[in-house]
Design a protein around this nucleic acid. Sequence first.
DNA 1: AGAATGACGCTGA
DNA 2: TTCAGCGCCATTC
Length: 121
Amino acid sequence: MPPGSSELPAAAGFDQRVYAAVGRIPRGRLATYGQIAELIGAYGCARQVGWALRRLPLPSNVPWQRVVNARGQISFTPSREGSDWIQAELLRAEGIPVDGQGRLPLGRYLWVPPLEDAVDG
DNA sequence: AGAATGACGCTGA
DNA sequence: TTCAGCGCCATTC
């Protein structure tokens, strides 16, 4: 729709990129915010990835729970209104052990995205 | 328009 | 290992 006719934020397209990238994370795997940002060509915009996931309506078909910070820990914050704890439960359901402090073995479950553009496919 | 905020990440102590 | 500081940039007030 033409600009000015809606209240849609300019990052609406950005959100879709994030959701598409997150949707590619296999079950039982983890990715970081920075990893998703870099994957969609927005290196350095890790925070914006978090914003996009925050705007994600729950429940959602997007595996948002597989996105954690680079420190290998679930980002706990009151603004999530409990979705952070839901994230821990969902990850445990996928076979990923989550610490009582939200920490998890990121090195063991880190997702390595395929290089689609480098090979013929 | 300017200032504060935040589901991040890196460096240094 | 944990903690503090700084850079980052869209969102929000």
